[in-house]
């Protein structure tokens, strides 16, 4: 099939970018979207132009590196799919495709479709962990965790940290991303001792990093390639409310 691409090109973080139009000819429907871009890039290189820079790594939908907004939708039109797992059979001959980077103040564009997502790491560093030491921990079966709890935690833990939720959010809020980790650790007994500290620190980091506030649009859930539910945001809110209750130790 033959397609027309409109791709965001931007030389560097300080430069102004714009959409450029490229033809993509003779694309096989078995190709993945990124393989289609590889083809276009090979053509650009041969004609002496700079290829389109885009983030990608595992190409199997788990590393969370790929990040493109395709026709207004993060990761493209196939639900529950990262760009690297999106296949060209989703498109038809003659389609026009707009490809843009994640857009948010906290995700400055570095070049073309590549953005800086360090802010997500900073949110994690604020408290996305259980402070256990290496070694000296209990036997794994000493803590019984009911299957529904383990499943709930796993549902939240499936987040790949790609940032599609932020790219889709009209407020550029990182609430779904943050809530997935807060909910995972708050549900598990291991995470409870630090639950109060964690939710306060991580939600503070959201604002410090320049993300917006959640106003319940739920675009995040719809755009998430892993189907992370907004119920985890409710869980985060609940955890936040708990911090306002006095504890038995009076703290």
């Amino acid at each position: 099939m033959d397609l027309t691409l409109h791709v965001w090109r931007q030389k560097g973080p300080q430069d102004k970018g714009k959409l450029e139009t490229y033809p993509a000819k003779g694309i096989s429907s078995d190709m993945s979207f990124l393989e289609m871009l590889d083809e276009v890039n090979d053509g650009l290189i041969k004609s002496g132009q700079e290829p389109i820079a885009f983030d990608h790594d595992c190409r199997e939908g788990i590393c969370g590196m790929c990040s493109q907004v395709i026709n207004g939708r993060p990761h493209g039109k196939q639900e529950g799919t990262t760009v690297c797992q999106l296949h060209m059979r989703q498109y038809n001959d003659g389609d026009e495709i707009f490809i843009e980077p994640w857009r948010a103040k906290a995700f400055p564009v570095q070049k073309d479709l590549i953005v800086d997502r360090t802010s997500l790491d900073v949110i994690m560093q604020a408290g996305g962990y259980v402070s256990c030491h290496t070694g000296g921990v209990d036997d794994a079966n000493a803590l019984l965790i009911p299957k529904p709890t383990a499943d709930y935690a796993m549902d939240a833990a499936e987040c790949i940290g790609c940032g599609a939720c932020i790219a889709a959010c009209p407020n550029s809020s990182a609430m779904l991303f943050t809530s997935a980790k807060v909910a995972q650790l708050a549900a598990l007994p291991q995470g409870k001792p630090e639950a109060r500290k964690r939710v306060l620190a991580m939600t503070q980091a959201i604002l410090d990093e320049g993300f917006g506030n959640c106003t319940n649009h739920y675009e995040c859930e719809a755009a998430c390639p892993k189907g992370i539910s907004v119920k985890f945001i409710a869980k985060l809110n609940r955890e936040y409310l708990k911090t306002m209750m006095p504890t038995s130790t009076g703290a």
Binding site: G72, R73, E100, K105, A168, P170, G210, G212, H217, Y218
Partner: peptide, 25 residues
């Protein structure tokens, strides 16, 4: 704050599930 967090808009704007109501609060 939310405006400040979203300085640039997409060339193709698409809403997936949000409502006119939510966007115009």
């Amino acid at each position: 704050e939310n405006r400040a967090a979203t300085p640039d808009s997409y060339a193709v704007q698409k809403s997936l599930v949000t409502t006119f109501s939510a966007k115009t609060m």
